[in-house]
């Protein structure tokens, strides 16, 4: 991974103390949830590991560290690296594409190069951006496992990896979209992208109406994770512009 990893999501207080001696007693810290800038109803790690598979993680990690295969520092650094990959990185990419037609053209032509331009390396897999239009709406799934543009957006949400989403998205996309509150006219083509191979798909949602005067940062705030998966559309500006 490149030096761009030193870069956190813009404007975030990602100062954290992890990276140093994160033990199972150390837990998530409240500042992280706040720093990610979106709400997390669940903070389930504020208790001791209690499941057998959690003990298995501890056992494997201890053995690997003792044998010198891995170091605790290596693990902590890798966790940090993944913590810095969040939907906000993707939102920044989308907002740039909305305001800069040349950038959007580059993003559509070569997703890896275009996101790297903004400091987000995407390596080893093809990143393919697909654009939602008034004629076509894209929605991404991985029916076989959990392929997701995680190098840009971070670890996928649980629902993306769930049996329900993986099973249903390809066969009843409109019912699935409705569960996400997304209802599209019949004359819009819904195209479901099943990520079956070495390509990862990033949806460029449509730019909401009434956002002409907004800054790039304000636009990025309208780009949700789900809008880049295609289960939702970008948020309407808030408050609604008044005449």
């Amino acid at each position: 991974m490149s030096g761009a990893d030193g870069r956190g999501p813009q404007g975030l207080a990602h100062s954290h103390d992890h990276g140093h001696d994160r033990r199972e007693h150390g837990h998530r810290h409240d500042h992280e949830a706040a720093a990610h800038g979106h709400s997390h109803p669940f903070q389930p790690d504020l208790q001791e590991p209690s499941q057998d598979w959690e003990f298995l993680e501890i056992a494997l990690r201890e053995l690997l560290i003792e044998k010198g295969v891995l170091s605790a520092r290596e693990i902590a650094e890798k966790i940090d690296q993944w913590d810095r990959r969040t939907p906000q990185n993707g939102a920044e990419v989308i907002a740039r594409a909305w305001v800069d037609p040349d950038y959007k053209a580059r993003l559509l032509a070569d997703g890896n190069a275009a996101v790297a331009e903004l400091g987000y390396p995407f390596e080893g897999l093809e990143l393919i951006a697909v654009e939602n239009t008034p004629q076509r709406h894209h929605m991404v799934v991985c029916t076989l496992c959990s392929c997701y543009p995680r190098q840009l957006l971070g670890i996928p949400p649980l629902w993306y990896k769930s049996r329900a989403y993986r099973s249903r998205a390809v066969r009843e996309p409109r019912a699935v979209l409705a569960e996400f509150g997304t209802v599209l006219p019949e004359d819009v083509e819904v195209r479901v992208l099943d990520s079956t191979a070495d390509c990862r798909y990033l949806v460029i949602p449509m730019r909401p109406a009434g956002t002409e005067g907004l800054s790039e940062a304000d636009l990025a705030a309208l780009v949700t994770r789900d809008s880049m998966i295609g289960t939702a559309q970008a948020r309407a500006p808030h408050p609604a512009p008044t005449a």
Partner: peptide, 23 residues
Amino acid sequence: AMAAVWQGDGAYGARDSLAADIY
């Protein structure tokens, strides 16, 4: 075409489609 895959047995619009990467 969704219709070619599911042949009526699904919840999709007439124009809806599905794309996948195939070796």
